[in-house]
Design a protein around this nucleic acid. Structure first.
Lengths: 181, 181
DNA sequence: GTCTATAGAGTGATAGAC
DNA sequence: GTCTATCACTCTATAGAC
């Protein structure tokens, strides 16, 4: 594995467990047993690291969404929730997009665009699922676009609540209502 | 207004707009035109400030919840969502409990207990509303405790999404689904 | 690519005068 | 209660040797 990829792996996990502002180049250097200056060789600034992180994460997440091939809408939605649940780990980490969305330090425009893109892609995917659910009658009848917003907000909020409580089952409890209508 | 209260007011707004770790005693000193050491006179450590902030906010929020006196469950729920919506401002701030829940720096146990208490009190209040909604038939039939978790998660997630987008109407769009069942 | 060394700015916190 | 002055530490980032 090349150094750059290993740095991204460690940085992603630190951002998801502690928050992007709560880890430093020194943390990354320690993790890879190198010096801070060497980390700067791979990512000249922390803003550049942020952009590389969120871009890679978005591409990876959307690739996994594209692999969901269940024919019925309710099963597709279950797979989506399971994917979000997986990013929560044991309640000690967040989806990187949620972690970045929580972050208050104003990222630059490029990072903001990636966060927005992540949300837009997710909303489009979910709206398609809810529209299918009307047709195959496996999901409650509702405005697909509105249901998509509610579903994404619920999943993100459930992650925050679960992480604050340190108990992953809070996520399951909150998201269980999505399929019940 | 005494200095301590003014400090809490400024600190609360900074925590809700920028995040608790993203403002310093120097920011507070500047805001009140005093020196850092004077801020330390009122709050010896930043942890002490955090505890005072979340305790005051929780008491204030629950007092406002207690003032909701609509007789029917759907109107009570609408008032709750409106209260949460109000804390979002124009999309530039969060409910302090959401801001603290997002925060990754491990607060001490006292702050964690306040966050947990805020969630517990909110869930109890919401479960009572959903239970009433079954009786007066103004809300969709659902397990009240489960619906409370989903409602709180949706409101918190909708705040995060709205703040990330910088557009408050995202909150309205996501929470509009709560009353539709 | 990785290193040593350093710059320059920020942080929370404390001692002690007034 | 507020001040000046300072401490010890961390942070991002850069210059230049190897």
């Amino acid at each position: 594995m090349d150094t750059r990829t290993t740095l991204l792996d460690h940085a992603e996990m630190l951002a998801r467990t502690r928050g992007f502002e709560a880890f430093s180049f020194a943390d990354l250097a320690t993790a890879l047993d190198m010096r801070k200056a060497s980390v700067h060789y791979h990512f000249s600034t922390k803003a550049a690291l942020a952009q590389a992180l969120i871009r890679r994460y978005r591409e990876s997440f959307m690739a996994r969404l594209a692999l969901i091939d269940a024919p019925e809408a309710d099963d597709r939605l279950r797979a989506y929730i399971a994917l979000y649940r997986e990013t929560l780990g044991s309640g000690d980490r967040l989806c990187l997009c949620v972690a970045f969305s929580c972050s208050r330090d104003s990222f630059d425009a490029a990072v903001g665009a990636e966060i927005h893109g992540f949300h837009r892609d997710s909303l489009n995917w979910l709206a398609d699922v809810f529209a299918l659910g009307q047709i195959d009658e496996t999901l409650p009848n509702a405005d697909p676009a509105g249901a998509a917003y509610a579903c994404l907000a619920l999943c993100e909020g459930a992650q925050i609540m679960a992480r604050a409580a340190g108990e992953a089952h809070v996520f399951d409890r909150a998201t269980a209502q999505i399929l019940k209508g």
